[in-house]
Every structure is written in C-alpha cells, then in structure tokens.
Simulated scan of single mutants.
Amino acid sequence: MTNHMVASWGVCIFRPGFAVVAGIILVLLAASGSSARASTCTFGITELNFGNVDTLAGTAVDSTATLSISCTGMALGSVRVCPNINAGAGGSSGGWRQMRNGTGSTLDFQLYRDASRSTLWGSAAYPVLGLPPTIDLFATPITGTATKTVTIYGRIAPGQEPRATGNYLSTFSGSETQFVYGDISVLNCAVTLIGGIARPTFATLAQIEANCLVEAQDMDFGVHGLLDQPVETLGEIGVICTPGTSFKIGLGGGLSGNPLDRQMRHGANAIRYNLFQDAGHGQLWTGDGAGILAGIGDGSLLAAPVYGRVPAQPSPVPGTYQDTVVVTVTY
C-alpha cells in the first residue's frame, strides 16, 4: 500500500511524464519485492522401502528416497525451501523414528541428509530428530521456474533386539511434513516455520520374515582305555528365532545314518554311542518324530542340552574316533 501511495504522489500536472515513469518503477519494485512469496513450489517424495530386514543379524540396513521439487513464479530467480519432516505416524523413541507392524511391534529407523548417515534430517518444530536441510533453487531467467531432486537417506538402526515378523510401516502426512518456502534472503530453516507451506506425503516400509540362527557345541568324550563302563559327556545347541516363530530342532544320523545307533569311526573301526535330550537318557535326539525338539521363538537364545553316552562295549583299536552330526532347524 505504501508503494502505491508514493506512486500517486508522483503524479504532477507540471511534469506528467516523470509522474508516469515514477509510478511504473515503483509498481515494478513492489511486484519484485513480493516475488518470493508469490513463488509456488510443489513436492513429491518416493517411498522409502528397506525391503526384508533381518534383526537377528544385528546390522544396519540402508535405503533411500527421492525428494523432487518444482517451483514457478520466481520473478527474482531464487527461492529457499525448508523441508521439515517430523517423527511420522509410527512415532519416535530415544532419538529414533519408528515403524510399526499390525500388532504394535516397533522397528527403529532414521532419516539423514547425507550418504554417510551422519547428519539427521529433522524439523525445526522437532529438533530432537535433527534439523531440516536448507535447499536453495535458482530459476532460469526466462521461465522463472526451477526444479531439483534431493536424496533422503534412511537407515534401520543396528543392534536392535529381534523383532516380531510382519510388515512395518510409518506414514508421513498432515502435520508430519511441513515444507516451508520463501525469500532466500530471510528464510532460516533452523527456526522458521512461516512462509509458503506444502505437506507432501510419503511412507517408510520394511518387512521382517521368520528366521532362526543355530550354533552347536562340539562334544568330547575324552581319552579312555577300556570301554568296560559307560562314558558320558554334555553338549549344547543354541537357537535364536524371531519372536513368534515356531521351530523344530532335529539331529541327523551322522556316519552311521541311523540316529538310533550312532557310530564314531576310526578307519574301519567304530565306537557305538547315542545322543539324548534328557539327563536320564530316556529321550533320543533324532531328525523326526519324537526325537525332535519343538518351540516358539521369542528373540532370545534357547539353549538345548545334548547328553552324549557311550555304552560299555568291547574296546576297539586305539585311535581318535569321530562323528559329524548335522543340526537342522526347521521353521
């Protein structure tokens, strides 16, 4: 309004030519001064999909999304964008954003501005998750438009406790995204939430499938002369499965191929032995039927004992007797 008032004062009956020139110049300046506010920017963000995530491995999983920016009406040729991204629908905890599955189980992840995942991508309204980057666009002189693409770097946090199976999701829409854009000379992305506003939507996704890890402890019956008395030892099988995953542990037959009559061998010579699930040697370990051990994973280590027993038998020739037993976990 002030600019128009100055222009009207410039109208003079003695020098009308100057009045017209002054009025035109002032009107043009007024239009240029509001050009940043008159700019219109639109945004699109691709889905951030981490794919299949194995939390039993405990390693980070990385993925990326792409932010596309298009601005028009840039009479002065530049505009600043502050892309504020809050926690998302999954919420956050301990400085990490979270995705959730249908039962409420959470999976921690984060958004970053750089490929090294060292600078968080957050929001001026929620700085605990970091601040937004500052993105400046410069228009072509003739069209007054500009476009730009920016990568959003995502990471599933390493070292998380095993999570339940399922599809994990967090959506970003409404108040979770506030992209502010305006005059490049005054807009400060660390503090400003006032300007042109856009609220693009996108989602982060991950899948956790059923999985189990297994390790087996070697069993040593020691050194013996005569086998006129039983010899016993104890081993262990360790299994970790994703929470809610049903599993079964079975032991193969080894060199003899028969889990009911196992043999450790030294050349053509053999020592009979067997493996049991209980200290009383009443329940054999086998690869099927009653000889397997069933359970449901909860993300923690299940330690299953293996009781070995060499019954009294004729003493074989001296030597080192061995067998290799395959542990199979079915889930």
Rank of each mutant, 00 (worst) to 15 (best):
T151C: 02
A146T: 01
A60N: 05
V79K: 04
L169K: 05
M74P: 08
V191F: 14
Y153C: 04
I135K: 06
D183I: 00
G104F: 11
G94N: 12
G130A: 10
A75E: 14
S116C: 11
S105K: 12
C82H: 03
S92M: 02
I85S: 02
A146N: 11
E176M: 11
G174D: 10
T59S: 09
G159H: 07
R113I: 11
Y126F: 15
I152M: 05
G174R: 02
D136N: 14
N167C: 01
S173F: 07
T103D: 14
I135Q: 02
R155L: 01
S185K: 00
T106E: 14
T171D: 15
N86P: 00
S185E: 12
D62P: 04
F109Q: 05
T59D: 02
T106F: 13
F109H: 10
L76E: 15
S78I: 10
T165C: 04
G174L: 11
G88Y: 07
L129P: 00
Y181S: 14
T143K: 05
M99H: 07
I85W: 01
A65C: 07
Q98A: 02
G122A: 05
A139N: 06
V81K: 05
T140M: 11
G95W: 03
R163D: 06
V186G: 03
F109R: 12
P162C: 06
S68V: 12
P158H: 03
F179R: 00
G94M: 11
W121T: 00
S78P: 02
G90K: 03
P83E: 09
A164E: 11
N188P: 10
A65N: 03
Q98W: 02
G73T: 05
K148C: 10
G95H: 01
T59H: 01
